[in-house]
Design a protein around this nucleic acid. Sequence first.
DNA 1: CCGATGTGAAACCTTAAGGTTTCATAATTT
DNA 2: AAATTATGAAACCTTAAGGTTTCACATCGG
Lengths: 117, 117
Amino acid sequence: MGQAKPTPDAKPAIDVFQAIADPSRRKLLEMLGDEEMPVTTISSHFSMSRTAVSKHLRILTDAGLLTERKVGRETRYRLEPAPLQELKRWLAYYDRFWDNKMLALQRYVESSDDHEE
Amino acid sequence: MGQAKPTPDAKPAIDVFQAIADPSRRKLLEMLGDEEMPVTTISSHFSMSRTAVSKHLRILTDAGLLTERKVGRETRYRLEPAPLQELKRWLAYYDRFWDNKMLALQRYVESSDDHEE
DNA sequence: CCGATGTGAAACCTTAAGGTTTCATAATTT
DNA sequence: AAATTATGAAACCTTAAGGTTTCACATCGG
């Protein structure tokens, strides 16, 4: 299971792919894009406990996807989109496969020396 | 934990976000982009057991990210990029946050009526 | 027909992920 | 100062995720 690689003293930081895997966390990102919000307000939009939401917020923050800001007794969270760039780069690699024409040609070329056995 | 929504008789299919969350699976997708490969060949690139790789292949297939094709006694897998479009669409929503100028303006507007408490 | 190959299914194990409840602490109000 | 509000930390529970090993089967090569 855990693929967390402690790496002696480096960032045990959470992987972006892992962070966005959970639907609740995706919802959080969506909610916090337009405006900063304190935990209680945020959790009022979920059916799970405030504490659970708080944990998700921590995970997202550790992944660099949210920023925390203390204002009085409350902690406000807001979207920090930067880490999503990594996802975008990862996806970009697959762009070439989306062009069906190129894909068809590619398969044709491959099949020329190895047709079907 | 399980966020699987059975939905009476629809696709219990695996969520793409979940499917790509595991690094081994991302490696599999990368390997199977250019050419179709049978399980044994694929698993030779991993340190885990062939059976474990086989399970990852199933998960990716269920997520629609791989296609299976039986050829004799072997099963060959190949990348099926289509489902990645969903990810791309999801990411596209966040594009507006990447333009720092717009972000700065947006924050300025917001702060006009609620400055800092 | 027989032994070697290629795979998937089952049963099981360990651990982390997602939740909950309870408790402690700090800032706000009255 | 006392009561209230906002949160995070701890301790715990349940279950699914990622692995392993063992077993059954189908296909291939002789």
